[in-house]
Design a protein around this nucleic acid. Structure first.
Lengths: 231, 231
DNA sequence: CGGCATCCGGGAAGATACTG
DNA sequence: CAGTATCTTCCCGGATGCCG
């Protein structure tokens, strides 16, 4: 049994809405609150648990994460699901419509990458860097490349396949990959976007490459950041 | 001469940032605050004055609009410009990089239009409806159509040209248009997306069509809303 | 009138502690 | 592990007033 707050002023106080038929305004009501789109981003490559979300969104507090998850669930963008025994853990998973928000994440990210204020040395989550591959690959260069590359990033593993100019990224164990990157996401980002030489990172023990080193180098070469905007 | 707030706790208190190298997170720092993207939207078809922005964003308060304009200017997304005499008015205009944010507005709007909770009967601004034409036209149907249509929406006028499957929308006086819609943006939205018959609207005096009525009907027919998402 | 600055109330976000 | 509870801080929204 729940009590309504007695001090609740009732429906006379309109909640923070944009009274606007524009789809963009409605989109902001759905996913425009602080942290909401980043929670969506973290779920784009598959369901996660509360504590994983918390770990991958440094700075979010538990109660805000709870509120965002409730809001997104209420808006039909994600669902709570209980994994079958023996895992028995509760996970949060995007609905099909939730997954369709990926172009928003991509478009915003690609645009913001041109910002002169963008600091690429900050920490980055495993999901972020894998999603960025989908956004930032050069289709022309990828066309010339057929490759299956694996990633073991701390707790998560992914497989990226470049084929006929398309780049696919899925969560999963990279068994058949030609090369496998092993290390932390932020270091991987330095290698791919900062073009820090793999040799240096390997020597420092920061990022290992298992398998075909040349294939790993070719993979890195298909990514490029857009030019900075001139203000 | 400006005074720093004496109560300012100094740089010890980190401002609300997402410490995240992900481009999406940085994008949210640039344009993720409440109202910011809607301010950008209102400037997408050309500069505006403070009071016009306020009128086109119902619900925004003057001080919040001031803060957003300062923030967006500081981020290099817009500039204040003084019109030459005799106008002498100050206007806010997007920078080239600011204009490049249009795909964000579009992607978000197209995605959110699928929301079951979207209420298309709310008021809509002139800029919103004109921008939505760029987003929502069916390229296939537009290909079969060559048309120049004008719009006189209260204080603003626009020209839309459909040509070779492309739809262009610019601010300007519609002199040469085959047909001109005259009325309020919200009523126009009802005609285009609600498919309210033009005859009914004309009879009610809500929306007039000057010129070639058949051309106006054909123009409306190239737009369609995406199917609602199933939750 | 346009473009703010200021003050205030309410509510959202952040940090920390605590519980099943 | 998966959240609540509580407290503080800050932002948003509304009203008012200043000033060219």
């Amino acid at each position: 049994m729940e009590l309504q707050k007695l001090t609740n002023p009732g429906p006379a106080v309109a909640k923070r809405r944009y009274d606007d038929a524009c789809g963009t305004a409605h989109g902001l009501e759905l996913i425009g609150e602080r942290w909401a789109l980043l929670v969506m981003r973290e779920l784009m490559l598959g369901p996660k648990r509360f504590s994983d979300l918390r770990a991958d969104l440094p700075g979010i507090s538990a109660n805000v994460l709870t509120q965002r998850l409730e809001g997104l669930e209420g808006n039909g963008l994600l669902k709570r699901r209980k994994l079958p025994p023996p895992a028995n853990a509760q996970v949060y998973e995007l609905t099909p419509w939730g997954y369709e928000a990926e172009p928003i994440v991509q478009t915003l990210g690609r645009w913001a990458a041109r910002s002169p204020a963008h600091d690429p040395t900050l920490p980055i989550s495993a999901t972020s860097i894998m999603l960025s591959f989908r956004t930032m690959y050069n289709a022309e260069r990828a066309r010339a490349l057929g490759a299956t590359i694996g990633f073991r990033l701390v707790d998560d593993a992914f497989i990226a396949t470049a084929e006929a100019g398309e780049l696919k990224v899925v969560r999963g164990d990279p068994a058949e990959a030609e090369a496998i990157f092993v290390g932390e996401p932020t270091v991987l980002a330095g290698a791919v976007y900062g073009k820090v030489p793999l040799n240096d990172l390997a020597a420092a023990g920061a990022l290992k490459v298992e398998g075909d080193r040349a294939a790993a180098e070719r993979f890195i070469s298909i990514f490029e950041l857009p030019p900075k905007a001139v203000i």
